[in-house]
Computed example of a mutant assay.
Amino acid sequence: MRLYFRRREEEKIRGINSWTLIYGRRKTGKTTLIKNNLKMDFYALIADSNNAIDLNDNIMKIDDVIKEVKSTLSKGGTAVIDEFQRLPEVFWSMISNWKREGVLVLVASSYGIVNKVFDRNSPLLGLFLPMDNIL
């Protein structure tokens, strides 16, 4: 039996209404917090540079994941890309060209990704709000 403890961060997650980058140390419960508290229309865990896994354990190609995320956002939905740091950077430019529709949540377990996403040369600079210290 798994125990689940309520966390003060749950309300913050439920209140996400803009493009957000959630980051923090590995194995601190970011994914569990998202899955239990964010109403999402599409979720993908980036497994490696070519594949991702959805909530139903379907393996998807990264190209198909990106298309599904874009489609979800264009309908005003909420999409989550977990382990975002594994997504090849070529897709960052693609994401930067999208309309700011829906809610896109990126989850990353590397503090280095914060420097990359918010670097002055990043195509994603200015598109995401950082959410740190929640875990």
Results as ranks from 00 to 15, higher is better:
Ser93Gly: 15
Leu45Phe: 15
Phe84Gln: 08
Thr32Arg: 05
Gly77Pro: 11
Phe42Ala: 13
Thr28Leu: 05
Met40Asp: 00
Leu125Glu: 06
Lys12Asn: 08
Asn37Arg: 06
Ser71Met: 06
Thr31Gln: 00
Lys99Ser: 13
Asp63Ala: 12
Glu68Met: 09
Trp98Gln: 12
Lys35Asn: 09
Gly76Phe: 09
Arg86Cys: 12
Leu127Tyr: 08
Ser49Ile: 14
Asn115Thr: 15
Gly29Ser: 04
Leu124Glu: 10
Ser122Ala: 04
Glu101Phe: 07
Ser122Cys: 03
Ser122Asp: 10
Asn58Cys: 05
Thr20His: 01
Val117Phe: 09
Asn17Ser: 15
Lys67Cys: 05
Ala52Pro: 02
Ser93Gln: 09
Ala79Ser: 15
Lys75Pro: 10
Gly24Val: 01
Trp98Gly: 11
Ser110Leu: 09
Lys12Trp: 08
Arg100Ser: 11
Ile16Asp: 01
Val80Leu: 02
Thr32Gly: 07
Asp82Glu: 06
Leu33Thr: 09
Glu68Ala: 12
Val65Thr: 14
Pro130Val: 06
Arg86Ser: 10
Ser96Phe: 00
Thr78Pro: 11
Glu68Asp: 02
Gly29Leu: 00
Asp82Met: 01
Leu124Lys: 11
Val80Lys: 10
Arg7Gly: 05
Thr78Trp: 01
Lys99Arg: 13
Leu104Thr: 00
Gly76Arg: 01
Asn50Met: 12
Met60Asp: 04
Gly126Trp: 01
Leu129Ser: 12
Ile62Trp: 10
Glu89Leu: 04
Val80Met: 09
Asn121Ile: 11
Trp19Asn: 03
Arg14Lys: 15
Ile13Gly: 00
Asn115Phe: 14
Pro130Gln: 06
Glu9Trp: 01
Lys99Tyr: 07
Lys70Glu: 14
Tyr4Pro: 05
Lys99His: 10
Gln85Met: 07
Asn17Gly: 12
Arg8Asn: 08
Phe118Pro: 05
Ser109Asp: 04
Ser93Leu: 13
Asn115Leu: 07
Phe91Arg: 06
Leu21Asp: 01
Ile66Arg: 14
Lys12Cys: 00
Ile13Arg: 00
Glu83Phe: 06
Gly76Asp: 10
Glu83Asp: 14
Leu135Arg: 09
Leu38Val: 09
Met40Pro: 02
Asn115Cys: 13
Glu101Ala: 13
Asp63Pro: 03
Lys35Glu: 07
Lys39Asp: 12
Asp119Met: 03
Glu89Arg: 11
Lys116Ile: 15
Arg100Ala: 13
Ile59Asn: 11
Pro130Asn: 08
Val69Arg: 00
Asp57Tyr: 08
Thr32Gln: 02
Ile13Thr: 02
Leu45Glu: 08
Lys70Leu: 09
Asp41Arg: 05
Leu124Pro: 11
Thr72Arg: 00
Arg6Asp: 13
Tyr43Trp: 10
Ile46His: 05
Arg100Lys: 14
Ala108Thr: 14
Asp82Trp: 03
Leu127Gly: 00
Ile53Pro: 08
Pro123Leu: 03
Ser74Asn: 15
Asp57Asn: 15
Gly24Phe: 01
Ile53Leu: 13
Gly15Cys: 03
Lys67Tyr: 03
Asp54Pro: 02
Ile62Cys: 01
Tyr111Asn: 02
Met1Ser: 13
Asp119Asn: 15
